[in-house]
Every structure is written in C-alpha cells, then in structure tokens.
C-alpha cells in the first residue's frame, strides 16, 4: 500500500489482504460481479487499513486457457485512527485458474488498485490534498465455477 502526496509517508507498507466477490457469467468468457476487500498493517502503534468495494469483471481471452484479465471500478477507503481517505478506485490485474474439483478452481492473481484525487482528512479537516492510494495485491483465490 502506498499513499502518494507531497507530505505522505513515501514508504510502501506490506500487509495481509482478504477479499470476497459474488457474480455471474455474462457469457462463457466474461464474469461480472461485486467485490469487497480489506488490507491492514500495523505501523508502529497505528493500525492502517484500506477497504475497497465495487464492481468487477473477469475476462478469459481464450476459453480453453486459465488466463484471465480483471478490471474493476469502485471505492477505496484508507483509515489510520482519525485519518481517513475516500476516493474512486480503478483496478486492473490478471490471474490464472487451476482446476481443483469439478465445481471449484483455485488460482493466483496480481492486482493493482489505484485511487487518486482524494484527500486525507482528520476530525478537524483536510490534512493533505491530491492524494493517491495504490495497493498491489499478490494473491491466491478459491472460486466456484
């Protein structure tokens, strides 16, 4: 996770992330749905969290391949005690399905969530403007066919 602005901490923070998505097949190669997720990290005594939610689409360029591309649009929110950030987010990524059983697949995925044009706020007001938020996720998933 990385916050980007003139006064933001330039260190990219590492932390665990979990997510869940529900959707349906639009056609044999395209799945669409809703997703949500959480990333978290303890920075000293401060718990940082990034929440995300929105719509997501997964496209298989070739029906016989596990490769799929992922795109999403939604909201990202950053929280660090009184510090908050909320902005529109775009997601891009790619993954690879591996058959597990007749009804389930597992896979791995790399995703970039990027948000910008937000501002950091606290209980008094704006702390920083023109703030970007990016989260790169390397993950494993379990999906029902």
């Amino acid at each position: 996770m990385l916050l980007s602005c003139t006064v933001c901490d330039p260190e990219r923070e590492l932390g665990p992330s979990v997510g869940v998505a529900f959707g349906t097949y639009a056609d044999s190669r395209l799945r669409v749905g809703l997703e949500g997720g959480l990333w978290a990290n303890d920075d000293g005594e401060v718990r940082e969290s990034v929440y995300r939610g929105g719509i997501v689409a997964q496209l298989h360029p070739r029906p016989d391949s596990g490769l799929h591309l992922v795109a999403g649009l939604g909201w990202s929110g950053y929280r660090a005690e009184l510090i908050t950030y909320d902005a529109v987010r775009l997601s891009l990524g790619a993954g690879w399905d591996l058959p597990l059983t007749e009804g389930w697949v597992v896979g791995n995925r790399v995703m970039l969530d990027a948000a910008s044009f937000g501002s950091l706020q606290n209980d008094v007001g704006e702390v920083a403007s023109s703030v970007g938020l990016s989260v790169v996720t390397l993950g494993l998933y379990l999906r029902r066919r």
């Binding site: 916050l3 260190e11 920075d43 000293g44 401060v46 940082e48 660090a80 005690e81 510090i83 606290n122």
Partner: peptide, 11 residues
C-alpha cells in the same frame, strides 16, 4: 502527533 497522522504523513 495527531492520532493516525504519523502513519500517513512524512513532513
């Protein structure tokens, strides 16, 4: 010193 700001800001 504000709560949370130390994690997000680098001034």
């Amino acid at each position: 010193d504000d709560e949370g700001a130390s994690a997000a800001l680098h001034i």
